[in-house]
Design a protein around this nucleic acid. Structure first.
Length: 676
DNA sequence: GAGCTCTGAATTTTT
DNA sequence: TTCAGAGCTC
């Protein structure tokens, strides 16, 4: 190979980063600790490859979110200055989004039609439910697993490449008795999707894997890329690893970056094994470790190092801070949730006064609903915030309804979309909807055929209106999705008013949807983006007119992955919430929860607050017993706490309290309260 | 067959 | 509190 060229901007990197960026021969595994400049390294790698003459179109950058890909590419542009526009041609995105692009292009090779539509999780569950219903499995003496559980089992099997019996035994033992029925359901689920020209999330990966399994087609597809770069490799699953193996050609390059200590997507069948097995899967692998932390001040790093040290798995990393002194993290015991809100908001405003804008501060929590009371309080005080994670815009019923109209037009074979739309009509239930779908199928899937459907009297008027709508929409073609949404809204608004309690809010959402659609020229692109890269903040939309305004970030820990803020507040750091009771079953689950906690804490640059309310309301079980007493998260061990400032927020009359004395006193109170 | 009402169960993280 | 499903009525 030619003499290694050097570029002035390589000087921005430390020696390990530089080794990764300018790596020449063979596969590369980068083990990157939290805050060690992982994004920077990937961005520089892209810049380096392009500077070395690699065609940007031959670079494939796989990231966890679209935002991450965009950020890396724009950084790469900035590094190269005049080369800026070229990074736009790099193939960047999530595994799922890239799968979608490749499958549209090579659909014939795997027996797909180009106009397939994508089922989101809710649609997939509904389809499973339909099949389950058809099989008469919904009402028996013994309860059959719920639709979401069924899909979970299915997904686990295909993503982890495991047999059904094994998956049942290991992850769903209480469903083991239904093995035969589940197998039948899954078989039908697969063939029904094929017949209806729809793919679920898992299919996007599976078909991609198939595409590169066959040597001939693999040549063609893999040949499209000279370099593959993968971010967050610790959160990929077996199918994704297989895709990479199929895409890899020894004459090209492959680089994956990950941190085994931050693997938190086990529930999606992601496995750290992918990182450990990488050198076996790709012989000749070079391993580079990034251990210098540029993010957190050393007291914070001291705390987070001790948290992750509890892991029984060996993380061969030794993170050290490049930033030096700062404030020790605070561990704050609050009397109750209200006081926790109070404390967090006061600190946020304090830091704001001192010059940290709101969007450089984030409140993190394990589960989406844990921010509910804080959100109320923020709203009451007129403090703007954006919330990431949890229920998405797209999952709201009225949005799904509207999208379903578009999906019918895009892919008239899309049974789930038809069902959804038809059942909105007065007088149309599941049976009638099924007949309409059959009728359309007989008309070779021309959606306009519903005009000739012989509807029952109760449904006749509404069906006629739907027919007019479809006749209006079909001529609009596949362009200008905004015009289509506008027309659909005219039809749907009255239904919305009748169906939902709060039509005004929902109606405004539809306005936002139309707004988003206006940014697209193609209906297909609009639909795909909504499903594969959905707007992930609830106020990405609502807040649109106030773009330059400052806002506080609220986020689930999972959605906070890869981000950093000057001040971080981890709330509800109590046992039962972190680790979540839902995930405290096995040792592996607890380990993953520990990593979740680690991810949360390592998001902080300068200030870290960990808060937990002592008293919390156990809302909807335990009649009579309105509140319970919490213990701090088990991950905040004595060893960890010695590195933190302990703060107790109590009434002023109570002095000199430590967490321990308060806990002891509360044990006594709990004992008494048993008899109250 | 559609649609309403009642009951009972469960409640995380996301592409 | 919310959601799914069973059962009842038109």
């Amino acid at each position: 190979m030619a003499e290694q060229t050097t570029y002035p901007w390589l000087e921005d990197l430390n020696p390990q980063q530089r080794a990764a960026v300018a790596h020449r021969e063979g596969p590369l595994l980068v083990v990157a600790g939290a805050g060690s400049g992982k994004t920077k390294t990937l961005a520089y790698r892209v810049a380096y490859l392009i500077a070395e003459g690699v065609d940007p179109e031959k670079i494939l950058l796989l990231t966890f979110t679209r935002r991450a890909a965009q950020e890396m590419l724009s950084r790469a542009s900035a590094i190269m200055h005049r080369g800026a526009p070229t990074t736009g041609r790099v193939w960047g995105g999530t595994f799922h989004a890239i799968a979608n692009r490749l499958l549209r292009r090579y659909s014939k090779m795997v027996g797909l039609r180009r106009d397939f539509t994508v089922l989101d999780q809710g649609d997939s569950e509904d389809l499973i439910n339909l099949i389950r219903h058809d099989m008469g499995l919904h009402s028996r003496e013994k309860r059959f697993p719920r639709k979401s559980t069924c899909l979970g089992i299915y997904s686990r099997c295909v993503n982890g490449k495991d047999d059904l019996p094994l998956v049942l035994e290991r992850y769903f033992p209480w469903c083991a008795e239904w093995e035969a029925e589940l197998k039948t359901i899954f078989k039908q689920y697969v063939s029904r999707k094929q017949k209806r020209n729809v793919l679920d999330y898992d299919d996007l990966l599976l078909y991609w894997a198939e595409l590169v399994r066959d040597v001939e087609s693999a040549e063609q597809i893999a040949g499209q890329f000279d370099h593959i770069l993968v971010d967050e490799y610790q959160d990929t699953n077996r199918v994704q690893a297989e895709i990479l193996r199929g895409m890899y050609r020894p004459e090209g390059g492959i680089m994956v970056v990950g941190d085994d200590a931050q693997s938190i997507y086990g529930f999606r069948a992601a496995t750290v094994r992918n990182m450990l097995d990488f050198p076996q899967m790709f012989p000749g692998t070079t391993i580079v470790k990034l251990e210098q932390n540029y993010r957190s001040v050393s007291p914070i790093l001291e705390t987070t190092n001790r948290v992750i040290a509890q892991s029984s798995q060996r993380y061969a990393k030794d993170l050290w801070s490049a930033r030096g002194d700062g404030e020790a993290p605070k561990l704050v015991m609050c009397k109750d949730e209200t006081q926790q809100d109070e404390y967090v908001i006061s600190r946020v405003l304090e830091h704001y006064e001192q010059g940290i804008p709101l969007h450089r501060q984030a409140v993190l929590f394990r589960a989406s609903h844990l921010s509910a009371s804080l959100e109320l309080e923020l709203t009451r005080r007129d403090i703007p915030y954006h919330k990431y994670g949890g229920l998405r815009f797209l999952e709201a019923a009225h949005i799904k309804d509207t999208i379903s109209f578009l999906r019918i037009l895009e892919n008239p074979r899309d049974e789930m979309a038809w069902f959804r739309v038809l059942q909105l009509l007065d007088g149309v239930g599941p049976a009638c909807a099924a007949r309409v779908v059959d009728h359309v199928a007989e008309a070779r899937f021309d959606p306009r055929a519903i005009g000739a459907f012989d509807a029952p009297p109760a449904a006749r008027d509404r069906m006629a209106e739907l027919s007019i709508l479809v006749d209006d929409l079909v001529p609009l073609g596949t362009k200008e999705p905004a015009a289509q949404v506008a027309r659909i809204r005219r039809f749907y608004e009255p239904i919305l008013k009748k169906l939902y309690e709060n039509p005004r809010v929902r109606s405004r959402d539809l306005e936002s949807l139309e707004q988003i659609a206006s940014g697209y020229k193609s209906r297909r692109k609009f639909l795909v983006d909504l499903q594969l890269d959905p707007p992930n903040s609830t106020s990405d939309l609502a807040g649109a007119p106030f773009v330059d305004e400052d806002w506080l970030v609220l986020s689930t820990i999972h959605s906070a992955k890869g981000c950093e803020w000057d001040a971080v507040y981890l709330i509800h750091a109590a046992d039962g919430f972190l680790p979540s009771d839902m995930a405290a079953g096995s040792k592996e689950e607890i380990e993953e929860e520990l990593r979740v906690a680690y991810v949360a804490l390592t998001r902080a640059r300068d200030f870290l607050y960990v808060t937990w309310p002592l008293r919390y309301y156990s809302k909807w079980y335990a009649l009579g017993d309105r509140h319970s007493y919490a213990q701090p998260s088990r991950f905040l061990t004595e060893d960890v706490r010695t590195t933190m400032d302990e703060v107790v927020t109590v009434d002023e009359s109570e002095e000199e309290l430590t967490i321990d004395t308060v806990i002891r006193r509360n044990i006594a109170e709990r004992m008494r309260s048993m008899w109250e």
